[in-house]
Design a protein around this nucleic acid. Sequence first.
DNA 1: GATGAATGAGTCTTCATTCAT
DNA 2: CATGAATGAAGACTCATTCAT
Lengths: 195, 195, 195, 195
Amino acid sequence: MNRQLTQRGRDRKRQLMDFAAHRFADNGYHPTSVAEIVSGMGVGKGVFYWYFSSKEELFLEILREAQHELRKVQQQAIGDEPDPVRRIELGIRASMVWLAEHRHLFHVFQFAAADERFAPALRRGQDVAVGDVVRHVKEAVVLGRVRDTDPQVLAHAILGVTNNLARTFIFERGEDAADVAEDAIAFCLHGLVDA
Amino acid sequence: MNRQLTQRGRDRKRQLMDFAAHRFADNGYHPTSVAEIVSGMGVGKGVFYWYFSSKEELFLEILREAQHELRKVQQQAIGDEPDPVRRIELGIRASMVWLAEHRHLFHVFQFAAADERFAPALRRGQDVAVGDVVRHVKEAVVLGRVRDTDPQVLAHAILGVTNNLARTFIFERGEDAADVAEDAIAFCLHGLVDA
Amino acid sequence: MNRQLTQRGRDRKRQLMDFAAHRFADNGYHPTSVAEIVSGMGVGKGVFYWYFSSKEELFLEILREAQHELRKVQQQAIGDEPDPVRRIELGIRASMVWLAEHRHLFHVFQFAAADERFAPALRRGQDVAVGDVVRHVKEAVVLGRVRDTDPQVLAHAILGVTNNLARTFIFERGEDAADVAEDAIAFCLHGLVDA
Amino acid sequence: MNRQLTQRGRDRKRQLMDFAAHRFADNGYHPTSVAEIVSGMGVGKGVFYWYFSSKEELFLEILREAQHELRKVQQQAIGDEPDPVRRIELGIRASMVWLAEHRHLFHVFQFAAADERFAPALRRGQDVAVGDVVRHVKEAVVLGRVRDTDPQVLAHAILGVTNNLARTFIFERGEDAADVAEDAIAFCLHGLVDA
DNA sequence: GATGAATGAGTCTTCATTCAT
DNA sequence: CATGAATGAAGACTCATTCAT
C-alpha cells in the first residue's frame, strides 16, 4: 500500500486519518465501521481502500503518527535543558498539554492497549518514551538528585501517574491541563510524603 | 434476568463467567463471540441465554464481580491496621498480588476502560476504590504523615502507578508481584526524590 | 464444521447441496453468490454457514460426492463381469448414462478443472477412476485383448473421449446417452481405422 | 472499440493481451482483476480501457486470437498433404506441440469452456476445428481408410483424446509433446484393440 | 494517451439473538 | 433446562468501470 499520492491524495488521506481517529476515540476500534467512516466523510467505500489496505492498518498508522507527534512535542519542550529533573518536569508538562489538546489520540492509545493486535505497536512506541525518561533519570541519579532505584520502574511509574491523572482530571473532569501537570510533577517528585 | 438457580445452575453460571472472562482477556470483548464461549464449554446457545440476557450483561457481571473481589481482598489485607499510611501500603501490596493471580481480570478492566459502554460501570467501581484510598490519605494528612494535597489526586496517582507497574513488570516481564509492590509503594511514598 | 446434525439438518444440507450444484452448473462457481443460493432457497444467510464453513467447502463437498457417486455407479454396472474389455465398455456406458442424468454435476467437474483451487481435489478423484480403468486395461493386455501400450495413456484417452462426446452430443445436442455411449465405446475400442 | 492504433499502441495492446493471458491462465478469469493486470504491467487503469472496452472483451480477444493461431499452425503443418489420414495425424501432432508451447492458452480454453459467457465463442472456434477434421475424415471414409461412422463423432473423439492427453501428460506430468502426440495418434487410429 | 482518484454495488462471512422441539 | 436450527442486519473488503486532470 505504498501508493504514489498527489497533493490531493495526501490531503484525502489526512482527512481520513483525522476523521477516523475521532470516530475511533468516540466509539472504539471495533464498533467503528469502515462504512461509518466513509459515509461520515461523504465518500465512496473504495476511497478508504485506496489509501489503506485495511481498517487495521489505518488504526496502526494513526497510532504510530500519534506516538511520533507526542514524542516530538516532548523533545521540543525539553530543548537543551541541562537539568535532568527539570527535563522530566518539562516532559510531563508537555505531554499533559498535548494530551489535553488531542484527547482523541489519548483514547486511541487506550484502545491500542486493550487490543492484543495493537499492543505490540503501542509497546514499541512506549518503549521509546520510557527510554527517554530513563535517560534523564539515570543522569539525575548520578547527580544525586534522584534516589538510586531501577530507572525503568521510575519511568513507568511516571507514565502511569501522568496518564491516569490526565484521564481522570482532564478528560473526565475537565480540569486545566497545566494544573494537572503540576500535580503530576509534584507527585512524581515527592510522592505522598513530603521531603 | 434474576433467575432462581439451583446449585447446579449456580455452578454452570460460575463456569461460564470464568471461561468467558478468560476468552475476553485473551481476545477482547468484541472479538469474542457467544458462539465461541458456548462451544468452548461444549454447551448449546440456549444455556448462555438462560443465565445471561446478553453478552453485554455477562461482561458487566464479570466486571462487577472482579471489582468486588479486588476490594474484598484489599479490605481483608488492611484489616484493622490503625496507621493510614500502612493501610495504603497494605492495599497496594494486596492489589498487586491479586492482580498477578487474576491477570485475566486485569485485562477485563482494560477492555472496560476502552469501551464507552462499560466505562461508566468501571468508573463506579473505581470510585469506590479511590474513595477508600482518599479516606486513608485524609487521615494521614491530619496526622501530618502526608503532605496536604488534593487527596483525589493522590489516590488517582497511586492507582496509576499500581496499574502501570503491574502491567509492565508483572504481566509483560513476569516479575514477582511482591517485588513490584515494594517498588510501587516506594514510589508512591517518596516519588523520585528521596526524602 | 463437523456438526451433529438432526434429520432435519441433514435434509437441509442435502437441499443446499443440490440447489447449489445446479446454480454452480448454470452460472459457474464465481458468478454464483452465496446470497443467491440462500435467497433462492428462501432461507437466511446464516443457514448456509451453519452447514458449510465457506462457499469453497460447499463446492468441494459437492465435487467429492459427485465423484463418489459416479464411481459407485460404475462399479455397480461392472459387477463381477470377468472380461476386462467388457468391463471397460460397461464403465463407459454407465458413466455416460449417469452423466446424462446428472449433467449439472458434469458441469461441476468442468468448473473444478478450470479452477486451480479445486483442480487437486478433482485430480484425486480422477486418479481413482483412471486407476480403475488401468486395472482393466492391464488385465486385457495380459489376455492379449488390448495392444501393449502405457495403460495410463489408454485410460486417459478413454476418459477424454467419454467426456468430450458426452458434452458435445448429450448436453449440447441432446442426443441419447445410450447411443453416444456406443459411439464412445466403438471409438475407444477401434479408433478411426476399423480392425 | 476499434481504435486506430499507432505502432506503439499495437505493441501495448499485445503486451496487455500476453500479460493478461498468463494471469488468466494462472488464476482464472474471475479471480484476475483488471487492477492486477494494469499494476502488474506498471500502467494506469486508463491504459486498459483505452485498448479494451471491458475485461470480458479482453478475454474474448485473447480467446479468438488463440483459436486462430492454433488453426493457423494446424493448417501450416498439414500443408498440401494429400493423404487424409496423414492430415489428421499432422494436425494432432501440430496441436500438441503448439499447446505445449502455449499452455497458458490451453488454460484460457478451459476457462472459456467453464463460463457460459464465453462458451459460445469457444464453441464457434471449436466448430471450425471440428469442421477441418470432419473434412479429412469424410475423405478418408470415401477412400476406405476409416470406418464409416458419423464423422462429427470421430472428430470430437479425436479432440477429446488430444486435449485430455495434453493436459494430463504434458501439463501435469511434463512429458514430451512429441511423444504424447504419438500416443494420441495411435489411440485415435486404432483404439485399444490393435488391428 | 495516460494517471491517480473515486464510485458503489456486490462479495463472502460473522454474530448476537431467538425459536421450535 | 438444553439443543440444533434459523434469522438477517452488519461487517470488512473487492472490483469493474468512470472521471478529472
